[in-house]
């Protein structure tokens, strides 16, 4: 859907002939669509960059957005959409900045008249559509990579594994557990068991707002994996609603030890380990 050499020439001429007017009018339209969230000067600079890129591409002959000769134009478009995506503008607000060029072109073409006016306008506007779509695409790509980055940062933030006692580590889970996070937690916990040579792990779910079948499955799998490695897991901090959900969902916790609080869980482990706690009468085991 390239513009022919002639059309490109006319297009570039049309835009560069009255460049001051084109950029001013273009800036006006964009400014009104963004309702003052970017300064006029900033927008003007962006519009000028685009304008320059379009004109210089047009002067080289055929304008074809996917061609090598349009690299500068593509760069200018992605630059614009990346900026907008990072500043939190919506996809519409971003692409409208490109589509605004159509309004400007309509005015220019109408004034100049000429035998090819309608045909030219249709061809120009197709090019603008392509530019708009390209901008939209790169906007979406930027947003996707932003989301991926954030998800990764969240994973890094999540869940420290702490050593509570000699041979006892604990992982206090806070927030919703999705599959990816559960996996990270699971791996980190198991690795810590190996690194610290701890045969006991306490998984505290006081900070987990809700447990669904999937989350329960992840916890269960962690417990089974730990057993395969030769360590035991205790689950603590099960809140009343969660206990109800677990029973209602028919999830079998089997013979996994569950305790009301982290303190109870630790006491339980220490007793298994033969360490005496204050509550119990001192006694000597064989």
């Amino acid at each position: 859907m390239a513009l022919s050499t002639e059309e490109s020439g006319r297009f570039a001429a049309l835009l560069s002939g009255q460049d001051e007017r084109v950029t001013t009018r273009w800036t006006e339209i964009v400014t009104s669509s963004l309702r003052g969230r970017l300064s006029q000067a900033e927008l003007r600079r962006q519009v000028q960059d685009l304008h320059r890129a379009i004109v210089s591409t047009g002067e080289q002959g055929i304008i074809e957005l996917s061609a090598d000769s349009a690299a500068e134009l593509r760069a200018a478009l992605s630059e614009l959409s990346r900026g907008r995506a990072r500043q939190g503008f919506s996809a519409t607000e971003t692409t409208v900045s490109i589509f605004a060029l159509k309004d400007v072109l309509a005015e220019l073409v109408q004034e100049s008249g000429g035998p090819n006016a309608l045909q030219d306008y249709v061809a120009f506007s197709k090019l603008v559509d392509e530019m708009g779509l390209f901008t939209f695409e790169s906007f979406v790509r930027t947003r996707e990579s932003l989301i991926a980055d954030q998800a990764e940062q969240l994973l890094e933030l999540s869940t420290p594994v702490v050593k509570l006692w000699e041979g006892v580590v604990a992982v206090p889970l806070v927030g919703t557990l999705d599959s990816a996070r559960a996996q990270v937690v699971m791996e980190r916990l198991l690795q810590t068991l190996v690194d610290t040579s701890s045969p006991y792990a306490i998984i505290d779910i006081t900070g987990v707002p809700a447990v669904d079948t999937q989350v329960a499955q992840h916890i269960l799998k962690t417990v089974v994996a730990a057993r395969l490695m030769g360590a035991d897991c205790i689950i603590s901090g099960i809140r009343p609603q969660i206990a109800q959900t677990i029973v209602a969902l028919g999830i079998e916790f089997g013979d996994i030890a569950t305790k009301a609080s982290l303190a109870d869980a630790l006491r339980h482990v220490l007793r298994l380990n033969g360490v005496e706690t204050a509550r119990r009468q001192p006694r000597r085991d064989a």
Binding site: M186, E187, L190, Q191, L193, V194, K221, A225, M229, G230
Partner: peptide, 16 residues
Amino acid sequence: TVVVGMRPAVAITLVE
């Protein structure tokens, strides 16, 4: 018999 030293990744895979 005691099996020792199973790696975490191996344990996770066995569970799956």
